[in-house]
Nucleic acid binder design. Structure first.
Lengths: 325, 325
DNA sequence: GATCTTAATGAAACCGATTACATTTTAGAG
DNA sequence: CTCTAAAATGTAATCGGTTTCATTAAGATC
């Protein structure tokens, strides 16, 4: 009987005991589906992630998953593969009554379709929390990090070290982190009175192959930059690959600061300076924020946005570079 | 009306049209929960993974996720963190009527509790497919790879190169791949007539820190091995970390073959020989196998097990070693 | 011990789909 | 133009819980 299981209503201890015995005897297992139907809600959280293989997203998922387990939520995982159409088709296929909340790292910051799908979820009472990537002009709840400031600090550090010819492998400007990190780069140069050279801005797509091409483009130009800021972990790896292919040496031929740390590099004694941030915690906080959005209808008009700090881990790669910068 | 949506029963085109118009007009969205309840089944697949952060598992998840999306299944992700209690609690919390199938990379190969949970799922009509890690004596459906043969080949390769003092950082022998890869190591030595030295067998736990300790233990003994076989990707990284910390050089001070390739190493020109296998495809095939298990009640008594091949990618690290081996 | 209030339990409606069954419409044969 | 079989549609039961409402049991008061 429902009342016994959900020990909510008032039940006599004796009858409760009796019911529990029968439950035990017949091995009764309550149906979650039936419960969901009659309650009109579930314990399922959706999570849409652009690139399952990228360790950055794995860490976020880990944070989400841990906190979700704490609350007893189940997490649906969907991979959009950085593909806007696939993202749409996932959003279209998600049925409203199956989800209690939705976490998403959207592909684009300017896609009206995704935004309106998300608004629909909200209007059906399913809170939405963005992670890492904002969507322009929509003011969704979300957990973000100091993208512009982080890259500003990074590039400023290069400038402090004496570098003037600083290139950037940027992310797609259709993503908020991509455009904000580029902004930070530009602002740092501007504040230092260094003219911005368009040739030094090469756009990648946050993935490895294109970043490799970008690195090639940057370093094979007549007057190549002496230092490069890479906009995410895979951009850094793309650049590193190029550097290795050409047998260049970090700190001698080229200086480098990357956005986001790469665990495995450190233990290989490849010590590059990076902008770091609490990635696992971003997922954790996103789940926390989502959980806070439940059952408080009164706060419906409050937009909750969390901004996590970023900081620089100096590993000195840029210091070694000598000669003209 | 149900018949129109599921265009199953015979409906007159004209009435279908009418119904669709009304659906359109009122913005009707069918309830998945209600459907699941009345149909007695859902489109949800559970996936229990030991370590979300390990790229090996990310790739498997990617394969699963892609194939699941193809069939229209949703994938629930749960992280057991290599913790048997957490695995149990996940299995306990999963309700039978929410899942259509279950994929799991179990923590242990000899845990009766997990096994009996899984059997219960099967008995409730929820097919189970193991991935990568078998459970002793239970003969579950699953997708596995040639663990013993792979490590046999790897160690044999070292022997062919002239090495005699070969150590191993093994995985936990409570996991099938861990014990099988150790078996392969031993068999290779035995077949070559090289006596097995217990000191050369140090057990890790497939994670980084303990593998680092294992590497330390191996290489700081009075008569250290000249070549080491590492049982998984993180073991390899643990060893590499130690090697780097001590400023040793692969190919000069120590030879190394690892089980499982590590993408990022190659692009950093850290070229180590590894046993490779189709990881993404293992996830893909597992989802495929699971899908095949649905709705064929007649085949209930057939155990479906897929064994994927492994192969060696020679990158020549071991060839460089000179002097006494 | 009769009466009233409150606690505990039982019964029935409901959530929103599917589906078996009953009923009506259509079509083809005589 | 019937009559009958088949096709189409309408109706109601069902899935397995939750929750409201009605009913009965228990406890308190005088």
């Amino acid at each position: 009987m429902s009342r016994v299981i959900n020990n909510s209503s008032i039940v006599k201890p004796k009858t409760a005991q009796k019911v529990l015995e029968i439950i035990e005897k017949y091995g009764y297992v309550p149906s979650t589906t039936a419960r969901n139907l009659s309650k009109g809600s579930s314990m399922n959280i959706g999570f849409i992630v652009p690139d399952i293989d990228n360790p950055f997203f794995s860490k976020i998922l880990h944070g989400i998953s841990d906190r979700a387990a704490f609350y007893g939520y189940n997490v649906f995982m969907f991979g959009s593969d950085e593909n806007i159409e696939r993202e749409h088709s996932i959003l279209k296929s998600l049925s409203y009554d199956m989800l209690k909340g939705l976490l998403i790292i959207p592909v684009s910051n300017e896609d009206k379709n995704t935004a309106s799908y998300l608004r629909t979820f909200e209007s059906k009472g399913i809170p939405v929390v963005l992670i890492d990537r904002d969507i322009n002009n929509y003011h969704f709840n979300g957990v973000f990090s100091e993208d512009e400031q982080g890259s500003y600090d990074a590039v400023s550090l290069l400038i402090d070290e004496g570098f003037k010819n600083i290139g950037i492998i940027s992310g797609p400007t259709t993503s908020k982190p991509g455009s904000n990190r580029l902004k930070g780069y530009k602002r740092a140069l501007k504040d230092a009175g260094i003219p911005i050279k368009d040739d030094y801005i090469v756009s990648g797509d946050f993935k490895l192959d294109k970043s490799y091409d970008a690195a090639k483009k940057l370093l094979e130009m007549p007057d190549p930059p002496k230092a490069i800021f890479t906009s995410n972990n895979l951009s850094t790896l793309g650049l590193l690959q190029y550097i290795n292919d050409k047998h260049l040496k970090i700190g001698r031929d080229i200086a480098l600061i990357g956005f986001d740390d790469i665990d495995y590099l450190n233990l290989l004694n490849i010590n590059i300076t990076v902008v770091d941030r609490p990635i696992y915690n971003m997922g954790y906080q996103a789940m926390e924020l989502l959980n806070n959005s439940f059952d408080k209808e009164s706060e419906d008009d409050i937009i909750k946005r969390i901004l996590v700090k970023s900081w620089i881990i100096k590993r000195g790669s840029e210091k070694m570079l000598i000669g003209e910068k």
